[in-house]
């Protein structure tokens, strides 16, 4: 049987399938449907230094083969996470990564420092790309100097696996990827949501309370795949690919494009068991193609 284990720097995953932040709650929400411990890892909700109420409703709009969201990082704050949520989930036997966001470099640093103390959290995913937060996320991920500044500052205090999640809302994503790699990122994940909007023609108003929001789901997959391919050519750290993955074939496309692991987001809403199906589908693909290690797929795209 083919080996599914992958390494992201020091981080060992039993298989390359993780869940995307903001789509998988804290894992508990899915425990009735699947064995959480069978996953390569889960990335929990975006966590900030202080509790946030998020944006006003409506925060969601369905779009062709996808959805827009403007949740706005609603969360209980890092102390709420540590006191209320961490004790409930720390015994999951999978890699639990916390997605960290902030509106200043200091907030990122303080949040990362607190999470560094948690034994059962082997890594963080630095969200420098969330397009929802007016004063924060967007700015860090869309300019090279600020992406470098925040990664550098967090690297100084955070000792475990530092994954940096890139925004697709940029002119050249490889520049940012190279910048954060040079600042000490252990891996990069991409893509976060694409900035979009929807209008209700009857009311002539935007559907979302924030006017614009983040697009996700199968409709973003070709863009995400292109960016994963470009970034994996540009950096040496492992790349974690996501954006519209809804089947094993989708996941394998990302691996072939250069990803070492993948995350599944929006597809969990339609099929809460999709992660397990993707893991099984990758295993079957290896068998069908007489390959003995999933790592053989990473970057195995045949061109020319």
């Amino acid at each position: 049987m083919g080996n599914l284990k992958v390494q992201l720097g020091e981080l060992s995953l039993s298989n390359p399938v993780m869940t995307a932040s903001g789509t998988f709650g804290y894992g508990e929400e899915y425990a009735d449907f699947i064995d959480i411990n069978a996953l390569g890892g889960i990335v929990v909700k975006g966590t900030t230094l202080h509790a946030r109420e998020g944006n006003a409703y409506p925060r969601m709009a369905e779009t062709p083969k996808g959805m827009l969201n403007a949740v706005g990082l609603q969360n209980k704050g890092v102390d709420g996470f540590i006191n209320d949520i961490y004790p409930r989930i720390k015994n999951f036997k999978t890699n639990i990564l916390v997605n960290v966001s902030g509106s200043t470099v200091e907030e990122y640093v303080e949040t990362a420092e607190k999470i560094n103390e948690l034994d059962a959290i082997p890594g963080i995913e630095l969200n420098i790309s969330c397009p929802n937060v007016k004063e924060g996320g967007m700015a860090f991920g869309t300019s090279c100097p600020s992406a470098i500044a925040v990664t550098n500052a967090v690297r100084k205090v955070y000792k475990k696996h530092l994954m940096v999640k890139l925004s697709p809302n940029v002119t050249d994503i490889t520049e940012i990827a190279k910048g954060v790699e040079g600042s000490g990122a252990d891996s990069v994940s991409l893509i976060n949501t694409l900035l979009g909007m929807a209008i209700d023609v009857n009311s002539r108003k935007p559907v979302l309370s924030t006017i614009t929001g983040g697009l996700s789901g199968p409709c973003v997959k070709p863009v995400a795949l292109r960016m994963v391919w470009q970034v994996s050519q540009a950096v040496n750290v492992p790349v974690v690919g996501m954006g519209g993955i809804a089947s094993a074939e989708d996941a394998i496309e990302f691996l072939l494009a250069g990803a070492s692991a993948i995350q599944i987001g929006t597809a969990n809403f339609i099929d809460p068991t999709i992660t397990i199906k993707v893991i099984n589908g990758i295993r079957e693909y290896l068998e069908r193609n007489q390959m003995d290690d999933v790592k053989q797929l990473t970057g195995a795209l045949i061109t020319g």
């Binding site: 789509t23 929400e29 006003a56 409703y57 969601m60 949740v71």
Partner: peptide, 15 residues
Amino acid sequence: HMACGFGACLCCVTP
């Protein structure tokens, strides 16, 4: 309006 229906996405909130 809901995206997941079981608490995973936080799209459906009311004050």
